[in-house]
Amino acid sequence: MALIAHITDLHLRPRGLACYRVSDTNMLAERAILALNGLTPRPDAVVLTGDLTDKSDPREYALARQILSRLAMPVFMIPGNHDGSADMRREMSGFPGMDGDVDGKLCYTAEIGDVRLIALDTNIPGKPNGELGTPQLNWLSDRLSDDNRPTLIALHHPPALSGIQHMDAIGLNDANALAEVIGPHKHIQRLLCGHLHRPIIAEFAGKIMTLAPSTGHQVVLDLTEDGPPMFNFEPPAYFLHHHTLQAGTVTHMAYVEAYPGPHHFFADEGVSWPGDDA
C-alpha cells in the first residue's frame, strides 16, 4: 500500500515579491503544506514535479527549504523549466535523490511503500520546453527492466498533448522516444507531470498520465486556436495517488482550501431514501 501526494509548480519568489506581480505563490505554497500535513491518513510521501522556484534564485531555494522542511513526510522533487538542475542539486542538498546524476540530469529512484518512483529531469537550461535526452532514456529503460514492481514515473513536462496550444508548444521534445521506452512495460501505473497548471488526465503510450494543477495560479482553459497565454486563480489543488494490491493506483484530486462541511446525508423528516426501510 502507498499514499502519495503529488504537488507541482510552486513558483516560489524571494520574500515580498509576487509571481508575475499578482500571484502570491509563497503564501499559496504555505497553505498547500498546511493542507498536506492535515490529511488523515497522512501521505507516505510528497512528489513535487518541478517549478519549485520561479527564477532558480538562491533566495527562492532558501524559502523552499524552509517551507518543505515543515512537511511531516519525505519530499521527492525534480526540476522544472523554471528551476535549474545543478541549482536544485546544490541548494536542496539533503532532500532525497539530490545526488542522482545521469549526464548532468537529476534523476533517481525511490521506494514509497510498495510502489517504486522513478524521478526524471526534463530541464533544458534557459529553455521553456523540455527534453529527457538519450543517456537518461537509456537509464530509464534499464531501471524499468531491472524491477517490475508497480511504478510511478515523475517528470515535469507532460509527454501528451493537452489541446492548450501555447503550452503544447513548450512541451517535451522527445516524447516519441519516451513512448518507445515505456510502452512495453505494463508495471507503470502513472506518469506524474506538472508544467500546465491544470488538472489533466490523458493516455500516453498505453499509460495514464496525471497532470496536477499548481498550488498557485492556474493556466486558463482555452482550447481555441492561438489562444493567448493567460492565468487565473481557480482553486489550487493537488493529486493523491492511492495504491493497493486490490485496486492498483487510484488518483483523487483534493483542494488546498477548506470548504463548508462535511455534512451527513439526512433526508427531510418523513421522507426516506430509495432502498431505506420505511
Rank of each mutant, 00 (worst) to 15 (best):
K105F: 06
L3A: 10
A278H: 11
F95N: 13
P274T: 14
N123M: 09
H243C: 10
H241D: 10
D99W: 05
G227E: 09
T40P: 08
T122S: 13
A18R: 13
A72G: 15
T53Q: 13
P262D: 01
T151R: 00
N138V: 15
Y61S: 03
A175P: 02
I4P: 03
D174W: 12
V181R: 05
A202Y: 03
P158M: 04
Y20I: 03
P184E: 10
A237N: 03
D87S: 14
H82T: 12
L144V: 00
L152G: 05
M167C: 04
P159W: 06
E234K: 08
P235R: 12
L211P: 04
S272R: 15
V181I: 15
D24T: 08
Y61N: 00
N123H: 10
Y108W: 07
G97R: 04
W273P: 00
E131H: 03
M1A: 12
Q66V: 04
L155G: 00
R59F: 14
F233A: 04
G206A: 05
L106T: 01
E131Q: 05
R65W: 07
D276E: 12
T109E: 08
G104R: 01
S162V: 02
L12G: 13
V102D: 10
K207W: 06
L191K: 02
S56W: 03
P158A: 02
E91G: 05
A64Q: 10
R13K: 10
P58K: 04
H166G: 02
R149P: 00
E91W: 07
L36K: 04
C107N: 07
Y255W: 06
C19R: 02
Q218H: 02
A110H: 08
V46W: 08
E131G: 02
P274S: 14
D44S: 09
H264R: 10
V75N: 00
Q246I: 06
G163F: 07
V22H: 08
P262W: 00
D57V: 07
A254G: 07
D146Q: 11
G216L: 03
M27V: 10
V102R: 14
E30N: 03
E91R: 08
M1D: 14
L192T: 04
M73D: 15
G216E: 06
A62S: 13
S141E: 14
A237G: 12
A254N: 07
L39P: 14
H6Y: 13
L152I: 10
Q218C: 00
V219C: 11
L12T: 13
L132F: 06
I67A: 09
M1S: 13
I118A: 04
H166T: 07
L192W: 11
A29C: 05
A278S: 10
A177D: 15
C107Y: 06
F204G: 01
G206D: 02
L132A: 00
D24P: 14
